[in-house]
Design a protein around this nucleic acid. Sequence first.
DNA 1: TTATATGTTCGATA
DNA 2: TTATCGAACATATA
Length: 262
Amino acid sequence: MPELPEVQVMRSYFEEVALNKEVKDVGFHDSLNKVFKSAKSVISKNMLGARITETNRLGKYLFARLSSGKWLHLHFGMTGSLEVFRSEEMPRFTRFVIEFTDGDKLAFKDSRKFGVVQIIDDPAAFQQNQKIADDLLEISLDKFKLGLKRRSIAVKAALLDQKLVAGIGNWIADEMLFNCGIHPEKSCKNLTANEIESLLESGQSIAKEAIAADTHYGDFPKHFFVNYRKAGAIHPDHPHSPVEGMRVGGRGTFIVPEKQRL
DNA sequence: TTATATGTTCGATA
DNA sequence: TTATCGAACATATA
């Protein structure tokens, strides 16, 4: 579930559980070591005995500052999430566990193992090295516009590119394009200034509303397109134009044809 | 059994 | 060289 709003909600959850607590132990549970982008010894060395002093987020990337000096970076891939447990058996698909001295254990779960657990110097350096753009909630209209202008790909593919703006994922991209009445395959270079502006506004308000609803699906505003995001569904505002599925930029994509013409 | 999945990266191609 | 596209990654679920 991890796009910007989901990661923001997980950040809050992480803070509730971990802030100012001391790490007593860490546990590694991925036999293929796919999610550990730093050596396990490095993760242990930096985390054992350290406290979590603050958190940060850029797009879908979550960071936790360690009192030992470096930062823990978590990325949730397609299927990552967090869950606290204590004496129970660890949750299904747990890949990484942070155990605190008060007995709480925080599980990083990720069935598909596209997630990341890693030690980094600091979020700013990480952003630079990975060439990640500004967060959707922070980016200026100018930067957003420039990023779109210098590409000639389908607008949806551009929105999903974290080097253009950080935090948009597949459902938010569809949501934005629906709101703005833009076909996902429209080329970036054919976007009008108005369309670009409304895309950014739309993306920001979607993210904020989703965070406000705690990213709980059932609590999303009724007008959210994601509620009707499957082929054949009928959006109440467009009773005669059933939702159509297609593939754009390699991703499942849904539109209301009547509203989003090429 | 087949298709799809809320993400990112890498290699091939233009 | 640079931009774009599609495959690949590992696994679960419908």
